Simulated scan of single mutants.
Amino acid sequence: ASPERPPPPPVGNVAAAVSFAIGSGSRAVLVMQGGVLVAEQYQGQGRVDRGELLASGTKSFSCALAAAAEADGFMRAGDLASIAISAWAPGGASPDPGQKQTIRLDNLLSMTGGLSNTGASALELNNVDSFRQAITARSGNPPDEVFTYGPNSFQAFAAAFELATGGSLTADLGVTGGQDSVSYLQTRVLNRIGIAPTQWLRDIRGHANWAGGAYFTARAWATYGQFILQKGAWQGEQVVPAALIERCSTYRNGAFLGYGLGFWLNRRVQDTFTPGVDSAPWPTEVAARFGAGSNIAPNVPESMFMAFGAGNVKMFILPSHEIVAVKIGGTQDDDRFLALMLGTAP
């Protein structure tokens, strides 16, 4: 018989952490440990059935999209993006093909490919052809040198997926055909873990907004977090290979150590963040930690990783304690919230 898995380490004071979050303006707080819901509280507009706009928290789903696409043989994270996006190949029709030809798909998912963040962003992305914007974005830096936060990398990755699954480039460098990326994710992964978005915003050409367009309830997003924590396993089934999920939180790019593939990492960034060169949408106190070579939450294990969207919409995954926590709204700096939960608050 296989040995029983040891229980997760004891936590600090989950009730105090939830109370702190609610007291500082969060409208929804949910904590799971070992796959069990241990705390859940709503206030104001927060409700158990409310689909929340995840904004950039949407990027977390790209981890599962990339893993499933690789498992199914469509594309590998280490591939050159120009294999799918022919306009980026040598002599391609996109601006700066000389630099873009060396961008890998994992560069796109880690925002280290050098694509500029010019053009529409956030909800304005839905008013343009977001795939064309991403494909024609200028290359501001060579890959693996600078962390450039913005939507173009994720829209380019989704475009590459749809091109790799039978799509084609239009004359104006848009994308037509191929498998719809969100429909594929829903069938391949989300249906199998029992969740679905309440809505997923799309642009004027019908392409899904992967940079910030998904709406999920707090419970559904936490369920996805549990799937990631379990490295792609669900109810005894390995939905996607564990190694392909695990790399989302272990991927290293020397351009910036604080981001994996679709997730922020609590690793110390060392000398990889240069204010004014690398861009990260964090409040002053967290940006200062990056500038000093530190991490997002110094009082929390470095193995923690998270998704973060505008309006302080956040999901935290703490493998050390088998915790998934979702916090909608409230404080920008979550070191205290997490430290209270783990009992590591100074």
Results as ranks from 00 to 15, higher is better:
residue 3 P to R: 14
residue 5 R to S: 11
residue 7 P to Q: 12
residue 7 P to K: 13
residue 14 V to F: 10
residue 14 V to M: 05
residue 15 A to R: 15
residue 16 A to E: 15
residue 19 S to H: 07
residue 24 S to E: 13
residue 25 G to C: 08
residue 27 R to D: 13
residue 28 A to C: 14
residue 29 V to N: 09
residue 32 M to G: 02
residue 32 M to D: 13
residue 34 G to H: 08
residue 35 G to T: 04
residue 39 A to D: 11
residue 42 Y to F: 15
residue 46 G to D: 09
residue 47 R to N: 09
residue 49 D to R: 07
residue 52 E to L: 05
residue 56 S to E: 15
residue 59 K to Y: 02
residue 62 S to G: 09
residue 62 S to Y: 00
residue 65 L to R: 04
residue 65 L to F: 01
residue 66 A to D: 03
residue 76 R to M: 09
residue 76 R to F: 03
residue 77 A to H: 14
residue 77 A to K: 13
residue 78 G to W: 08
residue 80 L to H: 05
residue 81 A to E: 00
residue 87 A to E: 12
residue 88 W to Y: 12
residue 94 S to A: 15
residue 98 G to P: 03
residue 99 Q to W: 06
residue 99 Q to K: 10
residue 101 Q to H: 07
residue 109 L to W: 11
residue 113 G to P: 01
residue 114 G to D: 07
residue 115 L to N: 00
residue 117 N to T: 04
residue 117 N to F: 05
residue 118 T to L: 01
residue 120 A to V: 00
residue 122 A to R: 04
residue 129 D to F: 08
residue 131 F to R: 08
residue 136 T to S: 03
residue 136 T to P: 06
residue 136 T to Q: 10
residue 145 E to P: 03
residue 146 V to F: 11
residue 147 F to C: 03
residue 152 N to A: 15
residue 154 F to Y: 14
residue 155 Q to E: 12
residue 160 A to I: 08
residue 162 E to W: 04
residue 166 G to P: 12
residue 167 G to F: 12
residue 169 L to E: 15
residue 169 L to G: 12
residue 173 L to G: 00
residue 175 V to E: 12
residue 177 G to K: 12
residue 180 D to W: 14
residue 187 T to Q: 13
residue 191 N to H: 14
residue 195 I to F: 15
residue 196 A to H: 15
residue 196 A to Y: 13
residue 198 T to G: 15
residue 200 W to D: 04
residue 211 A to D: 09
residue 221 W to M: 00
residue 225 G to I: 00
residue 226 Q to L: 08
residue 231 K to D: 06
residue 234 W to V: 07
residue 234 W to L: 05
residue 235 Q to W: 00
residue 236 G to P: 03
residue 236 G to Y: 02
residue 237 E to A: 06
residue 240 V to H: 07
residue 240 V to Q: 04
residue 241 P to E: 00
residue 243 A to N: 11
residue 243 A to Y: 00
residue 244 L to Q: 04
residue 245 I to V: 14
residue 248 C to T: 03
residue 251 Y to N: 09
residue 252 R to C: 00
residue 258 G to E: 07
residue 260 G to Q: 01
residue 260 G to E: 02
residue 262 G to P: 13
residue 268 R to N: 10
residue 269 V to A: 05
residue 271 D to V: 00
residue 272 T to Q: 01
residue 274 T to Y: 00
residue 279 S to M: 08
residue 279 S to V: 05
residue 282 W to Y: 10
residue 283 P to V: 09
residue 291 G to A: 15
residue 300 V to Y: 11
residue 302 E to V: 08
residue 302 E to Y: 12
residue 304 M to F: 11
residue 304 M to H: 14
residue 305 F to I: 07
residue 307 A to F: 03
residue 309 G to S: 14
residue 311 G to A: 07
residue 325 A to N: 03
residue 328 I to F: 02
residue 330 G to F: 05
residue 336 R to S: 01
residue 338 L to Q: 05
residue 345 A to I: 04
